[in-house]
Lab assay of single mutants.
Amino acid sequence: FSITQFVRNLGLEHLMDIFEREQITLRVLVEMGHKELKEIGINAYGHREKLIKGVERLI
């Protein structure tokens, strides 16, 4: 299971460039909250919320 699959499953594949540029893996994403996601350029609250909720389902 990769970050690419995870992001695609959430319908947020347009954010993949950010994850690749910042070298974010699923392991790193698990540790990130709204503040960190915003810092790397994910400005939409809804997108950040989707990512965080998606990660919570993985754990």
Rank of each mutant, 00 (worst) to 15 (best):
L37K: 00
Y45C: 09
G46H: 13
E39Q: 12
R21H: 07
E56Y: 08
V28E: 12
I59C: 15
E20M: 13
I3Y: 03
F1L: 13
R48Q: 06
L29F: 03
E39G: 10
G33C: 05
K38A: 10
E22A: 09
L51K: 02
V30F: 11
L29N: 00
K38H: 07
S2Y: 08
M16F: 06
T4G: 13
G11R: 07
G54R: 03
H14C: 15
E36C: 06
L15Y: 09
M32S: 04
I24H: 02
I18C: 04
R21D: 06
L15C: 05
K50M: 12
K53A: 10
E31Y: 13
M16W: 07
I42M: 04
M16Y: 05
I24R: 02
I40W: 04
N43L: 13
K35S: 09
G41N: 03
V28R: 15
I59S: 08
E56L: 15
E13S: 11
H34N: 04
I40E: 00
E36Q: 08
N9W: 13
V7L: 15
G11V: 03
G46D: 15
H34F: 04
R57G: 08
D17R: 09
N43S: 11
M32D: 00
V55A: 12
Q5F: 07
L37V: 01
I3R: 01
E13N: 09
V55R: 04
H14Q: 11
T4N: 09
I40V: 08
G33V: 03
Y45L: 11
V55Y: 07
I24A: 02
V55I: 15
R27W: 10
T25L: 02
Q23A: 11
L37G: 01
V30K: 14
E49I: 11
I42N: 03
E49K: 11
A44T: 11
K35N: 09
G11M: 05
A44Y: 13
I24M: 07
F19V: 04
I52D: 00
K53R: 13
V7E: 00
R8P: 00
G33T: 07
R8S: 13
E36R: 06
S2A: 09
R27C: 15
G11F: 04
E49A: 11
D17F: 13
L12Y: 02
A44E: 15
I3F: 10
T25R: 04
N9L: 14
G33H: 06
L29H: 09
H47T: 15
L12G: 02
R21C: 05
R57A: 15
E20T: 12
E31A: 14
L29E: 01
L37H: 02
I42V: 10
G33Q: 05
Y45T: 09
I59Y: 09
G41Y: 05
V28F: 08
L15R: 00
V55N: 01
G46Y: 15
G33A: 04
L15S: 00
A44G: 12
V28W: 08
R21E: 06
I40M: 09
R8D: 05
I59L: 11
K35D: 11
Q23H: 14
I52N: 00
V7N: 00
V55P: 01
I18T: 06
S2R: 07
E36M: 06
G41A: 04
M32V: 03
S2G: 15
L26M: 12
T25F: 03
L26C: 09
H14R: 07
N43T: 13
R57K: 13
I3E: 01
G41C: 07
L29S: 01
E22Y: 14
G33W: 03
G46V: 15
V55M: 10
R48A: 06
V30A: 13
F1C: 15
